[in-house]
Amino acid sequence: MARAENKETAGPATRLVANVAKNLRIRQGLTQEQLGSELGYSGAAVSAMETFAQPASDDMLVQLERVLGSGTGIFEQAREYVRLDKYPAQFKDYVLLEQKAVGLSLYATLVVHGLFQTEAYARALIGGGYPPLPEPRVEELVEARLARRVLFNREPVALIELIVEESVLRRGIGNPEVMRAQLLHLAECARRRNVTLQVLLMDCGFGGEYAGGHGGLNLVETPTHEHLTYLESQEESLLIADPAKVSTYMQRYAKIRAQALDPRESLGLIERLAGELR
């Protein structure tokens, strides 16, 4: 069932890579088993790639370039586009903006923001969702999510702000070891010079003000310094470009930031919570 769905929904980059790889394999007189052996994969994995049942993984594309690419760089260049094919349809437009952004201001209310997730946390979250996903699809989504982290080391540097609800840090995902590693990863991210991380305490509304009640929020500054807002809920998404609406979201984000702990206090809390999971 899962493989039939993949065949029907395979994106254009996935189809192009499969067709090119198949044609080059046949031209070189290789069977699927022989090519798989050269790549370090099974013949069944090559068959799944060629029939769109399972898109090529990032590692398989690297190996295809080595074995079939002949220095053309075709499979290397395809990596970014195949990765995009793996994202959910409602997310593809945003991820392109995210990877090119000069600035991101993020507010996470339910789980750790995808850009900051560890592999184990992402796998537990995606694999434990509903409706259940086939294991190959879980792995696709985990790989695609982790690939977004190249933004942290991109040149020119992107400035990233994350405000995370305290409840997110206390919500158990996977198991205590997964959560501890996730908290330590957040602490490591918080020490980056291009990252500002703050925690909004669960009792911040006791003073009569709580600006975060409308849910998660993603603000994007593009390379041309256009400001956009991206909202996502229940696997539906909305990208907003209207300047007046975006301004309102920016003001709301500024208020949320003002109500959160400062970065040093936030880092201390994250490290303390990680220590409690030893």
Rank of each mutant, 00 (worst) to 15 (best):
N153L: 06
E226C: 05
T72P: 12
E155A: 13
I160M: 11
Y94G: 10
Q54D: 13
E188K: 07
M60Y: 06
D58W: 08
Y41A: 14
A44W: 03
Y41H: 04
E50C: 12
L110K: 02
R171Y: 00
Y121G: 10
Y249L: 09
H113F: 05
V46D: 08
G129Y: 00
P131H: 03
N218G: 07
T196W: 00
A211R: 14
D85M: 02
V157Y: 04
G43K: 00
R25W: 03
I126R: 00
R3N: 06
D59G: 09
V220C: 07
A4V: 06
T248E: 14
L239H: 13
R191T: 08
M1A: 11
R264V: 15
L239N: 15
D203M: 02
L104E: 01
G11Q: 04
G127Y: 02
A56Y: 12
L238M: 11
Y253N: 11
R191Q: 13
L24Y: 03
P176K: 03
Y107D: 02
E76D: 10
A158N: 08
Q28D: 15
E143C: 07
R154G: 10
Q234P: 04
K100T: 14
L201Q: 09
V199F: 01
T109S: 14
R193K: 06
G268D: 14
L39G: 08
T9K: 12
I256Q: 08
I240L: 14
L269D: 05
G213N: 10
F116N: 06
L84N: 07
Q117S: 01
Y94T: 10
A122I: 05
E8D: 14
V112T: 11
T72W: 01
G172L: 08
Y230L: 10
L30P: 13
Q32F: 02
G268M: 09
L133A: 09
A124C: 12
N6Y: 10
E221D: 08
T31R: 02
P134Q: 05
V150S: 11
V17Y: 05
E165K: 00
R79D: 06
Q32A: 13
R171C: 00
A48I: 02
I26A: 10
D242K: 13
R149Q: 15
S70Q: 15
A122V: 13
R137G: 04
V199L: 03
A13W: 07
L30D: 07
L35K: 02
E33M: 05
I26F: 01
A44N: 12
Q234S: 12
I160P: 11
L217Q: 09
R154Q: 11
G275I: 07
P55E: 12
A2D: 12
G103D: 02
Y230S: 08
I270C: 04
S247T: 15
A101G: 09
G43N: 09
G128N: 00
G128P: 10
S42M: 04
V111L: 11
H227E: 12
L261K: 02
K245F: 04
S42K: 00
E226P: 06
T196Y: 01
L277V: 05
V178L: 00
K86Y: 01
G69M: 03
D242G: 04
R83L: 13
E221A: 06
E221L: 14
G43F: 04
A108M: 02
E50T: 15
P131M: 05
A190P: 02
R191F: 03
